[in-house]
Simulated scan of single mutants.
Amino acid sequence: MANYRIDFSKEILGVPFTVGTVDIQRARGPDRALRAAELRFARQHGVGDWRERADRAVIADDGAIRP
């Protein structure tokens, strides 16, 4: 299992601004890590859906976190 970092950003005038980052430890794959990060981000910000605070959720450039 791998570790993942997911970046959440809000787009303003076509430019993405990072509004949060969530690290997921031990996900079976990138799809599961992304879903877990979306749920955690929403819970941290006290909203029902992560899209209320961000426009995009993407796995960070290198995909995995190295200790």
Rank of each mutant, 00 (worst) to 15 (best):
P30C: 03
V58T: 15
D31M: 14
Q25P: 01
Q25L: 13
D49T: 06
R66H: 14
I12R: 08
Y4M: 03
E11Q: 08
E38G: 06
V19N: 04
G20K: 01
F8H: 05
D55E: 15
A36L: 12
A37Y: 00
P30S: 08
Q44F: 13
I59R: 01
A36D: 07
R53P: 13
R40E: 12
E52V: 05
G14P: 07
G29Y: 09
F41N: 03
R40C: 12
A64I: 14
P16L: 13
V19D: 05
N3H: 15
R56Y: 08
E38H: 06
E38Q: 09
I6Q: 00
A60K: 09
L39Q: 14
E11P: 02
W50Q: 03
D31Q: 14
R66P: 03
A57E: 02
V47L: 10
S9F: 04
V22I: 07
A27D: 12
P67F: 14
V19C: 13
A54I: 00
L39F: 07
D7C: 13
R56E: 12
L39T: 09
A27L: 10
R43I: 11
P16V: 05
F41P: 02
L39Y: 11
A42V: 04
A54N: 02
D31L: 10
L34E: 01
P67M: 10
M1A: 13
S9A: 13
L13F: 09
D7G: 03
G46A: 07
G48P: 03
G29T: 12
R43S: 11
R5S: 00
I6D: 00
V15N: 12
A64M: 11
R32K: 06
D62R: 11
I65D: 09
F8S: 06
A36Y: 08
I59A: 09
A37P: 00
I12Q: 13
P30Q: 03
R5G: 02
E11D: 07
D62M: 14
D23E: 03
F17G: 04
P67Q: 07
V47K: 14
G20A: 10
Q25A: 11
Y4P: 15
V15P: 04
V22L: 07
Q25Y: 12
R32G: 15
A54L: 10
G20F: 00
G20N: 03
A2C: 13
Q44V: 14
Y4L: 04
A54K: 01
Y4D: 02
D31K: 08
N3G: 10
H45N: 15
G63W: 00
I6W: 03
E38Y: 08
R51G: 10
T21A: 05
A57Q: 02
A36P: 00
Y4Q: 01
R35C: 03
A27P: 01
R66V: 09
G14S: 06
A57H: 01
N3S: 05
G63N: 04
A57F: 01
A33R: 00
D23W: 06
P30I: 01
D61G: 12
